[in-house]
Amino acid sequence: MAKTVEGLYYSESHEWVKVEGDVAIIGITDFAQHAMGDLSYVDMPEVDDELEAGEEFGAVESVKAASDLFCPVSGTVVEINEALEDAPELLNEDAFANWIMKVKMNDPSELEGLMDAAAYEAMCANE
């Protein structure tokens, strides 16, 4: 059973968001990394990229699959997790401890459209 973490926001496309001030820290969920299997590559945006909510910002790849990543909130990329460039398996080891990017949010009210841990678990149970 895939785990979730309380206090985070979740998107339908399996990203999680942790809020620190006006910065959204974004990663993929444990459910997502399980579904993908051993990850071989994380395609990340560049710092300063401006993203719309729902916009594709990268992808995760395993040997036989690829899945696009969608940004749950709009904003500007302020940092990417460079450790993933050489070690995509970090997401398999702990999807919540290893974030993908940090985004300075334009509109924190967009978070209201996301799910909490319980709602996300319920959604996954139906997939």
Partner: peptide
Amino acid sequence: TLQAREQHIRREK
């Protein structure tokens, strides 16, 4: 290798 770039996985992407 690096097959996740290819059409049988990515289709139109």
